[in-house]
Design a binder for these strands. Structure first.
Lengths: 210, 210
DNA sequence: CTTGACATTCACCTGTCAGTGACATAGTGC
DNA sequence: GCACTATGTCACTGACAGGTGAATGTCAAG
């Protein structure tokens, strides 16, 4: 028996993420987390004060949402450096990629539609704050030319792609497109690009309607 | 004690819907349904063969998804009768309204992101079939002039608004807009209209950017 | 070595879940 | 009235959930 409080705390926090990826929110509970951490569940109450507090500790520890730099960090190659539409398309594509490689975040987002939890509350705050930053940054990157439709576009297409990512695990089909294959995601990228360019009134460099 | 098999079956099927609206999918189970129907749970096994079969019976009985006529049934008033964009906007708005007044459908759609069930499978089939009809009808209504972006637009904006309806119960905030108020839904309608008209290249009759 | 604090485990409580077997009762044909 | 069938009720099992009190083991200070 190793006696190390901080190590046990860390193992419990890590076990939350492991249970979420393996069993989803449905299988998340005191017993499952303790079992996964190979520790007794009573430690959750002693060290954190309860299960919700453990979830909050996990939310603080994890890389649940992406930074603005992860989305619009690098410069765009080629002649479109100042195109607002090109930046917007890039941002939306990268947000899809960022979400797809965060299975835990997907689980939380899916579960918050059924029942909000401390995890989803923490995630909401992060998301709203970083989205504001991101839209501001997009305007900068696009040469400072604001466009009335930009927040609308980003908000609606962001919601659409987020939903499609969440669906991919369970159902996978949406309007005839199969999102269990990479080809399906390619069609989503194409659709986003076509729509953004049409809406912002900039002709598309490489037209790719779906 | 009333002894009437068909009546008891009907009460069990109805209880599924009642439990779903009152407690959501999380509270749906053999015990809850039987309690709500004021019958013994053993009847679920006797009459339907199991809980999943009861869910399938409920799916067949209920008005889970809307008909195409409910969305594009009547003629549009005014001079925009043949505008594809106007029809598309109307369809999207009515789909939001149709979903908002179907709490059970919302529960099923939220739950299928966590774990598919017989109910979500039945719903998926309905949805995919009727969506195909709907897009076809839209093209007719819009004067037969197909537009390459129409399926894309309808698919993405449909996904976005569906997701926002599902969020409204639990979180309510999206990109600064509050979807617990009617004003928030008005902004969604405006955003959809602005985007559709911009994307389809038809000037908007009453401009209403968000 | 002794003592005491603390990390950790064990055993148990209560409640809910899905599912089943045995029993009670009502209506029907005879 | 009698027997049979179908409807409905009751009581139970085993599994698992969240949560808690007491006991066990380990380490370090004295």
């Amino acid at each position: 028996m190793v006696r190390d409080r901080v190590r046990s705390q860390a193992r419990l926090v890590a076990a939350v993420g492991q249970v979420l990826t393996e069993a989803g929110f449905k299988g998340l509970g005191v017993n499952a987390v303790a079992r996964r951490a190979d520790l007794d569940k009573v430690l959750i109450y002693r060290y954190f004060g309860g299960f919700d507090a453990l979830l909050e500790a996990y939310a603080r520890s994890g890389d649940l949402w992406w930074s603005v730099d992860e989305i619009v960090g690098e410069h765009l190659p080629g002649p479109e450096q100042d195109s607002l539409a090109a930046w917007c398309v890039l941002a939306l594509k990268r947000q899809v990629a960022a979400l797809r490689q965060r299975p835990v975040t997907q689980q939380i987002l899916a579960w918050e539609l059924v029942e909000p939890s401390p995890l989803s509350r923490a995630l909401s705050e992060l998301r709203e704050a970083r989205t504001r930053q991101l839209v501001g940054r997009l305007v900068e990157r696009g040469g400072g030319r604001a466009h009335g439709l930009l927040p609308t576009l980003h908000g609606l297409l962001g919601a659409a792609s987020l939903y499609l990512v969440l669906r991919a695990h369970s159902v996978g089909q949406w309007h005839g497109v199969d999102f269990t294959t990479e080809a399906g995601w390619g069609r989503l990228d194409g659709a986003i690009a076509a729509l953004v360019h049409a809406a912002l009134g900039e002709p598309q460099a490489t037209p790719s309607r779906r």
